[in-house]
Design a protein around this nucleic acid. Sequence first.
DNA 1: CGGGAGATTGAACGGACTCAAAGTCGGTGG
DNA 2: CCACCGACTTTGAGTCCGTTCAATCTCCCG
Lengths: 234, 234
Amino acid sequence: MFSQAALVSDLGTSPHLPSPRIDNDGAFTVHSFFASCPGLLGTAFSYAKDEEIYGDDEPAEYVYEVMSGAVRTCKLLDDGRRQIGAFLLPGNIFGLEAGPNHRLTADAVIDTTVRIVRRRSLETAAQNDIRVANALWAMTARDLRHAEDHMLLLGRKTASERVATFLLEMDRRLTVAGLIDLPMCRRDIADYLGLTLETVSRVLSQFRTEGMLGLSGARHITLRNRQRLRSMNI
Amino acid sequence: MFSQAALVSDLGTSPHLPSPRIDNDGAFTVHSFFASCPGLLGTAFSYAKDEEIYGDDEPAEYVYEVMSGAVRTCKLLDDGRRQIGAFLLPGNIFGLEAGPNHRLTADAVIDTTVRIVRRRSLETAAQNDIRVANALWAMTARDLRHAEDHMLLLGRKTASERVATFLLEMDRRLTVAGLIDLPMCRRDIADYLGLTLETVSRVLSQFRTEGMLGLSGARHITLRNRQRLRSMNI
DNA sequence: CGGGAGATTGAACGGACTCAAAGTCGGTGG
DNA sequence: CCACCGACTTTGAGTCCGTTCAATCTCCCG
């Protein structure tokens, strides 16, 4: 399936390569970074819901940008326990490694289209253009910042605080017209927050009861009291 | 106290800059990276036990290498809850940021000596020598890998599994002559593992009872059954 | 409209926490 | 060198938050 990847050109330095635009939420987004790199424009691939994009420990040959859909990166224990490290949404880049192999699996939360670029193309560009090297470093640093924040959540926050943090993160990243349209199910949220799906459901119900949000179908959420949520977010 | 820092030279490219040596445990160590960068050799500073080295959100002006002692990086909630992101031991580098500010506080676990280098010196070197840029990226990537592993621990492992993982990490990083000489107290371990100090103490006692380790004083640990610990580490 | 995956809710359980007390050890001063 | 002090650690008992197990419900999609 990666055979089309050979079509990706391996062009090196580009004279007027823009810096990646970093959006205000400090998430993983570097909107259309690939698109703005002449000669690095990638091939599109589609993945069905729950299809694996790459596996843990596989050689990291490609870097991905979500075009539509959603992706989760996870670590698995062999008894089935799962920790989701991040959700990647349209515009977000993932799969970038400094070492040879991937250290998490990535799979599609829902039907998803990604654009891929050979990792070697980026590295070649980075060797010739310090701005590309800086951009790669900045992306890894952004992932690290998210991971550091998430360690605090997983190690020290209560269930309600975790869900409040999650809601505010999703509000930042995918609210359109006042509505959060979640791509992921309760189990995904739970595995992201280090909880069980029942606890996530209970906390959301409690928040609804308290007037902090509206639920129209499990995946459509309207925040009604961001101030209160922020006070739980700490 | 940072006035001496002005002594650090701001030299740019060095013709034969070595790649940082990455030790086999994949931890944060880049042994004597600074020392091996002509012109980047840093000034030494000492910090007393529990003294802050830098604070959350402070401008990230310097990069640090632990010469002796131990450092913890932490995030704090205003009610006192604390999550330790990492312990830094001799040879480890910390305080490197891609953005303008620190995102965690760093303080000395015990009396500690560090060597500091101006962040600007490293960045100038990186602009002129792609190998330096690669080294900076690799360091951030190593921190990210650790954070990803730690998210799995914090989100999904049991207390016994967390302590087993901790013991094996410390075994890798500071065992000398078969003995782990811990620089940190039970509270630090607990805040690293997302547990309470009582739980850490209970699990260690249980491991001792089961013959998996020996305790001679709370901070001297001898592992007696690494195989069994590894099986709990998952 | 009907089927079924996903979500909600309930009840009981349990692992880690909290609160409390006793024990240990390293460091300091006599 | 030894005794003491105080910080740190260990251990105990009871509690609680989040989990587990189970049943019902919702709503999305055919």
